[in-house]
Amino acid sequence: MTATAHAPAHAEGHAHPTWQTYTKVALILFALTALEVGAYEVVHRHSPAGFAAVLEPIVVEVLLFLSAIKFALVAMFYMHLKSDGKLLTTIFSFSLLLAAVIIGALMIIFYYLYQHAPTVNQLK
């Protein structure tokens, strides 16, 4: 880990993706967003009925998967993690991993907690 490799000013830019890549990523991001909203609408309206029946049990996973791809695309290409080296990727991924684990842990803990102590839900 010595400083001999390159001066920081030159490290920027030349390894970065091109305009074409940026545009492709943008198009994929829009397509994925359209898929997300589409999945929501199919389940929401129950039509087409056959597709809705298939999609409904897995819609949460599908939506999370699609958003994870979008997230990764922005991070890799727009935030340049793909070309900017391991250290920055490590910092971001470690934080994200911990963030996800903590959200998951809280949900599991409270799920079991509330199984034993349900509150009145007047909405149902």
Partner: peptide
Amino acid sequence: GFGVWAHHMFSTGMGPFA
């Protein structure tokens, strides 16, 4: 150390798994 926080909360009754 990020996965042990609830040892401060045993007395809240988290259930055997937690």
